[in-house]
Design a binder for these strands. Sequence first.
DNA 1: AGTGAAACGACCGTAGA
DNA 2: TCTACGGTCGTTTCACT
Lengths: 161, 161
Amino acid sequence: MSTQHGGGAAPGAAGPIDDVSKAIIEQLQEDGRRSYANIGKAVGLSEAAVRQRVQKLTDSGVMQIVAVTDPLQLGFSRQAMLGIKADDDLVAVADRIAALNQVDYCLVTAGSFDILAEVICANDDDLLRLITRIRGIDGVLSTETFMYLSLRKQEYNWGTR
Amino acid sequence: MSTQHGGGAAPGAAGPIDDVSKAIIEQLQEDGRRSYANIGKAVGLSEAAVRQRVQKLTDSGVMQIVAVTDPLQLGFSRQAMLGIKADDDLVAVADRIAALNQVDYCLVTAGSFDILAEVICANDDDLLRLITRIRGIDGVLSTETFMYLSLRKQEYNWGTR
DNA sequence: AGTGAAACGACCGTAGA
DNA sequence: TCTACGGTCGTTTCACT
C-alpha cells in the first residue's frame, strides 16, 4: 500500500532526493534489472554506492522495482474507472471498495465524485457483478462507469523528467 | 507505450500464459530483482528456463520490470484525474493530451466523459497552467478536475490473483 | 557516504536431450 | 522448450578513507 496523499507519513522520510539518486531512479525506470555496476558507470558512482542508494530508496518507499503487466494479454479484457458518490466517512468507504480484488486503484477525490476506483475484470459478466457489489457497499450512494476503450498512455517514470 | 485497448495488436501475441509463467510473474511482482535461480527454485524450473521465459514475457510486452516511484516523496504534491469531453476523433485528441509531460495516464472512455487523464504536478500553479493548456487543445470541449485527496490502493500485480 | 579488493553467486551463450 | 555446463560479469562483504 502506498503512502501518498494522506496514507500516512513517509516511512523513511529520506528528505529531498538529490540529482544522483534521481539519475539512478531514471536508469531503473528504463530497466528495473539493470546492473548496479552499469548504473554506476552512467551516474559516476561505484557499484557499492549505487547499491546503498537503491537500498535506501526502496526501504524508504520512494521507489519500488516490480513487474507490471498488461491486463489484456493476461485475459482481463474489461477495464473501467468508476466515479462514486458516497456519504459520511469517505476514507472508510474507499477502503471498503479498495478491499475488493478487482479494484487495483482507489482514491478519495474532491469534485463531483467522492471516490474514483479503477477496476479490471475478465469479461462483462464479472464487471457487472463487481459494480453491483460496489453499489451495495455501505455508504455508497451511486456509481458511474467509464469503460476503457483505448489506452493511449501509461507511464511509470516520475520525478526524473 | 502500452498496447491495451486499441493501441494495436499484441506484438508478441504469446498466446495464453500458462501457470508456470504466471508463477514467475508473481515472483517478479513481489521483487523485480529476484534472481532467476531463486525464481527457478520457487516455480520448479532451471535458471535458464526462467530466464528464457522472462525474456519472452518482456519481449512480447506481457510484462515489464521497472522502478515505480512515489510522486509525493519526489516533490510532486498535486495529482488529479481530469474528465474531458471532446469532439470528433477522440483518439487524436487523447493523443494530444497524452503528449504532455505532466500527463502520466490517458485513455478514451465510454461514458459521460470521453477521455480520462491523470496528471501530476509540483504545485497548484503548475496544475492550473496544465489544465488551462489542456482546455486550449484542439477538440477539447470541457474539463472537470478531480483532485486527489487520499490514495487508498495502488496495485501492480495483475493476472496472478 | 564513498572506494577497492576478493569470494561468492548470478547471468549468459552454447550444446544437447 | 527444457537441462547442463563453463566463462564472464555482477553482487556481496569487509576493511579502509
